[in-house]
């Protein structure tokens, strides 16, 4: 096994963050700005860790069990937030996450405020990146699936989507469940690496971080959350090395720089850094058995619409004079 020294834990963390960010991305794709994904990661982590630590269930089974708890939780939460608008969903799911934190704090069996510890170590860097590759594959196929296209339509306008015959509630439930499940999967892996789970890992602050990864990276293609999670996890560590200080002042300085960079990136590219898959990449890696020429007309229209949306976003940046009230 090759040794990466200082960077190995950082890379593992980046990989885990990327997995959870993909979960956030898939849920956001249908216009549900969830701030509960840290809670789903925590639910997955607690479920999987209790199974491996207290019941000696094999690791893969425990992870899958944690993931299914996240799936069910996501579906149920989407039923609650179904009628709400984007920002109200964000704050309601935030409330759900904070409630989970308080509940975890008050359950003795889960260690309460003392954290749940004694979890066996199973997660390695190889496993994290193998799972990340799998999750990326799922996200890539999701982007091109009927569900993915329907989700985009719902995100752009749920009323229009419903008028076109899309089952809006079903799309919302499925994407929330899938996103919650992937976040729980990431959480389960993370618990078997850090070996301890703290209720504080589920707070809105963490959820906000995942949302930050997705929105700064770009929330219209699965490459966005990947890039966002990797860059924004590595950035504070790179700053730590660059500043080479180790007191409170350096921590403050690091996060101040982090905050400024986030603000500047958002102002520079309000749609996220990556807005579409580069066309060259798409042509080079067509879905096996389905040549690029046989892409259905509907998908082409959807792709064109997505690209023109991205172009419009770029154009509107360049014309500050055109003032839409």
């Amino acid at each position: 096994m090759l040794s990466l020294g200082f960077w190995e834990p950082v890379l593992i963390l980046a990989g885990l963050n990327a997995i959870i960010a993909i979960g956030v991305y898939i849920t956001l794709m249908s216009g549900q700005a969830s701030l509960a994904h840290a809670a789903f990661a925590g639910i997955g982590a607690y479920s999987a860790a209790v199974l491996t630590t207290n019941f000696h269930v094999p690791f893969p089974l425990a992870i899958l069990a944690g993931m299914s708890v996240g799936l069910v939780g996501g579906a149920l939460l989407s039923l609650v937030t179904m009628r709400m608008s984007l920002l109200v969903v964000a704050l309601t799911t935030l409330g759900f996450g904070e409630t989970m934190v308080v509940i975890a704090f008050n359950i003795e069996y889960l260690g309460g405020a003392q954290s749940f510890s004694g979890i066996p170590l199973y997660t390695s860097i190889g496993l994290v990146y193998a799972v990340l590759a799998l999750v990326l594959f799922v996200a890539w196929r999701f982007d091109h699936s009927r569900l993915g296209l329907a989700a985009r339509a719902v995100r752009d306008s749920s009323v229009t989507a419903a008028a076109m015959g899309i089952n809006v509630p079903l799309v919302r439930i499925l994407t929330f469940a899938l996103g919650g499940g992937i976040a729980a999967l990431g959480g389960g892996l993370s618990a078997h690496y850090t070996l301890v789970i703290n209720p504080g890992d589920m707070t809105f602050f963490e959820s906000f971080r995942y949302k930050l990864f997705v929105l700064t990276g770009g929330s219209y293609t699965f490459l966005g959350p990947l890039a966002g999670a990797l860059a924004l996890t590595l950035l504070p560590e790179a700053l730590r090395v660059a500043l080479a200080l180790s007191d409170v002042l350096s921590q403050s300085l690091r996060f101040m720089i982090y905050g400024i960079i986030v603000v500047l990136v958002v102002i520079w590219r309000p749609q996220g850094v990556i807005t579409r898959v580069p066309t060259g990449v798409r042509a080079r890696f067509p879905w096996p058995g389905r040549p690029a020429a046989r892409v259905s007309p509907a998908a082409k229209v959807a792709a064109l619409a997505a690209e023109s949306r991205a172009d419009r976003a770029d154009a509107s940046l360049g014309s500050p004079g055109a003032d839409r009230p």
């Binding site: 920002l87 986030v262 603000v263």
Partner: peptide
């Protein structure tokens, strides 16, 4: 929301 979160971390 994200940008002001950045401001908030900064402050």
């Amino acid at each position: 929301m994200i940008a002001t979160a950045g401001v908030s971390v900064f402050l």
